[in-house]
Design a protein around this nucleic acid. Structure first.
Lengths: 337, 337
DNA sequence: CTGTTAGCGCATTCAG
DNA sequence: CTGAATGCGCTAACAG
């Protein structure tokens, strides 16, 4: 009754079966060091026979690596985030990292909480949307000693690395584009700005552009992101009997709503109203009319974010800010006035 | 030089600081057992002072629980999956579970690989899309002894619990709906069926319905999921000079493309062609015309899937299949012929 | 090339 | 109510 338990578990079991030490098993499983082909074969056989799978927690504890990266985002509901996560996951997976996603529905306290959650979980790095957060967020992440980056924004002066673009400048560019087309009475459809500095900065950019060009009259309209917002706004304009020259939609779905409502009310786009999107989602290339958009570099940003984090985690490369260019895709929903 | 390292890490450090044992620290941190208020206070103080955060791997190793659930899906690019993941994450997070997402781009081998990946990672349960997979998949998951479910399908006869709906029946219902409207020449726009049994079953349902009603003439058209597919098909019909009576879009985005192309070509919907979606994405309520859709119970499915898994993991409740009803939302894109 | 030996940080009997 | 001791399963020196 003093004899050791006869059925060791995990690595020990297969070590015994293969007639080697656990160290050797670990070696073949991790491809480290040299192991004789014979030994390796025996180990591998035992591994498959027992359908052995190394315990992740034990490995993580021993190596101090979880190979897990977390993304804390507002929501997966908006296509642009889903698209971002899609490429992130792709790149991360290719490098052997897992992606855990946590959403906070545009709420700073919740965001902080979710960051804390993923830290508890053992994320080796965390990707956060935007640069503005609960003041405790950077502290939390920093004291936990896990690398983190802000995305969808480019803020080189920030103490935290940012992977993104200058939202305010892009918005200015979009307005300038509209102005160059001869539009003066410009409306901007935007989403709630609470816990969303990307949206806030776009608004700032819009105002800057308007200020620089005195001819511009700006109207800002806020509504929850969705096609309904665009549709309702166009309806309101038509009913008030007065349309702006152009409408910049800070989320493409607004434009979708506008296009449809315009059709419903026989408003000709772009003849009576120019409409411009800000993301360049897939469907914009096929809409009627095809939507002129600022094209957010979401894919490039996702790849760079993943690669940057991987290089940092794997090779100790420093995390450097990255600024991605956005292009304006001129299509049919805008016209020279 | 024999003295123990003076700066123990983790739980030991705060145990020392609080003048208690590690066991006690563990107790207050896990709310287990009774601890005197005084002791608890001292421990908590030390915890916050040192900004202590229990090591997830160590805890997982000791408790054999990772509180991580994985979802292995085709892609996050299609809104319907993003929507599903969004509610899954929500429910899971509320119960203290983390969600890791792995995508496989509609490829069975890749799907198997990703399942293996999340198993290595220590997922306590895995959620897979569809019921048809590489034959090794169920074996893999079963021998790993982690509970798993198939989603977006309802197959009570399957050995694996399914949370979803009967794709073939829903598709039949959709076709029947169209037929009841008096349509006979019905086209069905569907996506690739490779590694996608949901799509295959919908097609089967479509054929069943057509077979049951001899008056129906069916045309199946496959194209990658996206608005382009719908637009191109409508263009092709117009150019061939022959439109079907109705088009069932097995993914809503096809309908978006059709609606837009129809506008471009001045085809009146539903007068010249009835169009029906199959998911009921948000924008369908605002399109022009508003899209008649079969409404996939994605949210209910997500909630139930998460709750079922949580109940299983937390309370040992058995995983029971769940069949969700889909309703048909009659809007403006279909008409009585 | 391979085995031995320590921990990694935490939860958990079992005593007291 | 609290502490000491043990082990979760694996990796990483360090020998040999």
């Amino acid at each position: 009754m003093d004899q050791p338990n006869d059925s060791p578990s995990g690595i020990r079991q297969i070590a015994r079966q293969a007639g080697v030490s656990t160290a050797t098993v670990s070696r073949v499983l991790n491809g480290s060091a040299r192991v004789s082909d014979d030994t390796r074969a025996r180990v591998l056989k035992a591994v498959t026979q027992h359908n052995y799978r190394p315990n992740a927690a034990a490995k993580a504890l021993a190596t101090r690596r979880t190979r897990t990266v977390a993304a804390v985002i507002p929501t997966l509901e908006h296509s642009i985030f889903a698209k971002f996560m899609n490429v992130l996951e792709d790149e991360l997976a290719a490098a052997g990292y897992s992606l855990v996603i946590a959403t906070h529905r545009f709420d700073y306290r919740s965001e902080l909480k979710r960051c804390s959650d993923v830290l508890h979980l053992g994320a080796e790095a965390v990707i956060v949307s935007g640069a503005d957060h609960d003041p405790e967020l950077p502290t939390l992440l920093a004291t936990a000693n896990v690398p983190f980056v802000y995305t969808s924004v480019y803020a080189p002066d920030s103490a935290v690395p940012t992977f993104g673009y200058n939202n305010s400048r892009l918005a200015s560019d979009a307005v300038a584009h509209l102005a160059a087309l001869g539009h003066q009475d410009i409306a901007v459809l935007h989403g709630p700005t609470a816990a969303n500095d990307r949206m806030r900065h776009r608004l700032i950019g819009v105002r800057d552009a308007a200020q620089r060009n005195p001819a511009i009259t700006l109207t800002e309209i806020e509504s929850p992101i969705g096609a309904a917002g665009g549709a309702e706004q166009l309806a309101a304009w038509v009913e008030s009997g007065r349309l702006p020259d152009a409408c910049l939609c800070l989320a493409d779905v607004y434009a979708l709503g506008i296009l449809h409502e315009a059709q419903r009310r026989a408003i000709r786009i772009p003849d009576e109203l120019s409409v411009m999107g800000f993301e360049n989602l897939d469907w914009t290339a096929n809409s009627a009319p095809r939507l002129t958009c600022l094209s957010l570099p979401t894919v490039e940003m996702g790849q760079a974010t993943a690669r940057g984090i991987i290089a940092h985690l794997d090779d100790g490369q420093p995390l450097a800010d990255a600024d991605f260019a956005a292009t304006i895709v001129e299509r049919e929903s805008t016209r020279q006035r």
